[in-house]
Deep mutational scan, measured.
Amino acid sequence: MKGKVVSYLAAKKYGFIQGDDGESYFLHFSELLDKKDEGKLVKGSMVHFDPTPTPKGLAAKAISLPLE
């Protein structure tokens, strides 16, 4: 699924993505496929991810940034 980063707290390594389906997904650095892309996780960045339901809500897994 595609989505847009709505927040990312680099110090805490987490944030949120708004998916194309309108839902909010929890984003964690550990799910970023290329850790070098962390600096690109800023508000408004477009990402691809696997939407995954968890006991705490919806989460983004296997997060990647589109090729530039």
Rank of each mutant, 00 (worst) to 15 (best):
M1E: 04
M1K: 06
M1W: 04
M1T: 06
K2H: 13
G3I: 02
K4W: 15
K4I: 14
K4F: 14
K4G: 04
V5Y: 02
V6R: 14
S7P: 00
S7E: 08
L9H: 14
A10N: 08
A10T: 11
A10Y: 11
A11G: 10
K12C: 11
K13N: 05
Y14A: 04
F16K: 05
F16I: 07
F16Q: 04
Q18A: 11
Q18H: 11
Q18E: 11
G19E: 00
G19Q: 00
D20H: 08
D20Q: 10
D20Y: 10
D21W: 03
D21E: 03
D21R: 03
D21P: 00
D21L: 03
D21M: 03
G22N: 07
E23V: 11
E23T: 07
S24L: 15
S24F: 14
S24W: 14
Y25D: 00
Y25W: 02
F26A: 03
F26H: 04
L27C: 03
H28E: 05
H28G: 06
H28D: 06
S30M: 10
E31N: 11
E31T: 04
E31R: 05
L32M: 05
L32V: 04
L32G: 01
L32S: 00
L33K: 11
D34W: 06
K36T: 12
K36L: 10
D37F: 08
D37E: 07
D37A: 09
E38Q: 06
E38S: 07
E38T: 05
G39H: 14
G39K: 14
K40S: 07
K40R: 14
K40Q: 07
K40C: 10
L41P: 01
V42F: 10
V42E: 08
V42C: 11
K43I: 10
K43A: 12
G44H: 05
G44R: 03
G44T: 03
G44Q: 04
S45F: 08
S45W: 05
M46S: 11
V47P: 01
H48Q: 14
H48T: 14
H48A: 12
D50M: 15
D50T: 15
D50I: 15
P51V: 09
T52S: 13
P53M: 15
T54H: 08
T54C: 08
P55D: 10
P55T: 10
K56A: 09
K56V: 07
G57K: 03
L58I: 05
L58D: 03
A59R: 15
A60Y: 00
K61N: 06
K61L: 09
K61P: 01
A62N: 15
I63Q: 01
S64F: 13
S64P: 01
S64G: 08
S64T: 12
P66H: 15
P66F: 15
L67G: 13
L67A: 13
L67I: 12
L67H: 12
E68R: 10
E68M: 13
E68V: 12
